[in-house]
Amino acid sequence: MAKMTVKLFATMMIYLPVNSTKSHGFDYQLKDETTVGYLIDDLKLPRNVIHLVLLNGIYVCMQNFETTMLKDGDVLAFWPQVAGG
């Protein structure tokens, strides 16, 4: 069955499942036609906190959440609004 990795960083770490094994992330089983938007709702991630979403390192803007399809082996990472330097 197809699976991918979800990573939650910074203050979104509180939404990590207790058994997450990868570094700040966990495996996610893909269903048919899973979009970024579906995954967000499935994991009950708060949309108002999500600011930066990178799919295999590429930025996914909020308008494309419902149309961006996920596939086997993808890495999807989430951050709230962050900055540093």
Binding site: K7, F9, A10, T11, H24, V49, H51, L52, L54, G57, V75, A77, W79, P80, Q81, V82, A83, G84, G85
Partner: peptide, 24 residues
């Protein structure tokens, strides 16, 4: 502001390590 009010106090500048790495 989520950055200056929450992110920087909690994780400091080091919040960037994973961001910049994932960005390649």
């Amino acid at each position: 502001n989520p950055v200056t009010g929450e992110g920087l106090p909690a994780l400091g500048t080091q919040v960037l390590m994973n961001v910049i790495n994932e960005t390649g």
